[in-house]
Design a protein around this nucleic acid. Structure first.
Lengths: 137, 137, 137, 137
DNA sequence: GTGGTCTAGACCACG
DNA sequence: GTGGTCTAGACCACC
């Protein structure tokens, strides 16, 4: 599981972190019953305040995706995969909806938008794939 | 020129307003030399504080898209259309990039994303077209 | 008497106009008893709202430099030259004081300031002289 | 770093504050990487509204002189000193230009202006020097 | 604690 | 009527 936050995004960092946990769980990593990285570990990895990570986890706990195991850490629940698959689609759909809606309002044509999406997808997925490879190394 | 803000969006309202002015000018409405709606008028129309609109206009003035005419209002500059076409692409590209990047990170496939985009585009552009028609009525 | 306003100056336009009348009267043009340009004439010459000129004149009337002659216009008073010489020094001193004070606070040296003053003086007085010549033509 | 604003100046307070930060950075205090006084702190020190200080800082951020560090404060950028030396000269030159131009238009002679400048410089720099000494105490 | 955004409402300069 | 500046004070995201 690799995390990455964009401080310049309008999306709050704790939401970015929460979304990435959701994406990971939806993809089967980490699996139910396993522990997510500790607040301090993830915070130091992302160079982010521990409170920010804690808030992301707290949010996920509220959604039934994580549960706190005293003295152990935060554990992925058994129903998490199902919840996360749903959440993932909701999140992505929501983000794309906002972006596409704005593109539509901007006067661009459907083709403009399609080609922009293809272009950015190539960039973004290329990067994601490379990251994935490095990670497995 | 029809404006619409989403107070629940993570994007600041003043940026939403500024973006919509950019989109409008890029589409030729309002044309160079004309006045944008007054701060107070637009504020009351959007049910938003005048300062919020003023901040959007101030941002656009800084970018050379508007200029303040003492006692008259804010005027679209002659070079605004050119600037706005560029800005429009930057804004949309940026938004799509964020959304698509997140979609890529989420583990969705290219086809998932494409079909989501098509679906949301149909919804969004349909709405935009209807709004346009109503406006012309 | 030639007027010139700088809309980009932080000094309000009506004060700029009033100051220029003061400078003119202090230099003997227009002389006591003569009429200053009408509000409308000066306003159209400066491409400025008549109210703005009216306010400048009203300010000067309050200071005893102009007096309103019904149906004629605004007349330079007999004591105006004396008042204007004093006002002129006050105005210039005040402006220079502000500028020099800021220069002192900025950490520039006395020589930096002197050379800046000489440079700007050459530019400004050169332009003023040229304007004077053109005017006499 | 000592700040001082003149509420009666025609120059907006937020510009006065921004200019003083520029002067300070140009003089090496505060150095790159350090934090400027917090918005609230400076506001209470200057007996000014926090928004006014925030606007000054925002202006400087736009110019690349400061950058916001989430939850920490506003940090002087590495390229700030260079930018500030340039900005300092621009600001002072601009102010002196306005004042000198007006002096030239007023009919004063070069010597009048020079002696006024010397006089005001002595006053202003004397005061600045005294303030500096007190500050170091 | 930090800055960022927004609201509400004042006064000023200008048309 | 217009925008520009300033004040006062709210809530949010983050440290």
């Amino acid at each position: 599981m690799v995390f990455q936050v964009r401080p310049d995004s309008p999306v709050p960092i704790y939401e970015q972190i929460a979304a990435q946990v959701v994406f990971g769980v939806a993809a089967g990593d980490p699996p139910p019953g396993s522990l997510v990285p500790s607040v301090r570990e993830l915070a130091s990895q992302l160079i982010v305040n521990p409170n920010t990570v804690a808030r992301a986890y707290q949010e996920l706990e509220r959604q039934g995706i994580l549960e706190s195991r005293r003295g152990l850490g935060m554990q992925v629940t058994t129903k998490a995969p199902e919840l996360c698959e749903t959440r993932r689609m909701e999140i992505i759909r929501q983000r794309l909806l906002h972006a596409v809606r704005e593109a539509a309002a901007s006067g661009l044509t459907a083709d403009d938008v399609r080609s922009l999406v293809e272009e950015e997808w190539t960039r973004a997925s290329g990067r994601a794939r490379r990251r994935g490879r490095e990670e497995r190394t």
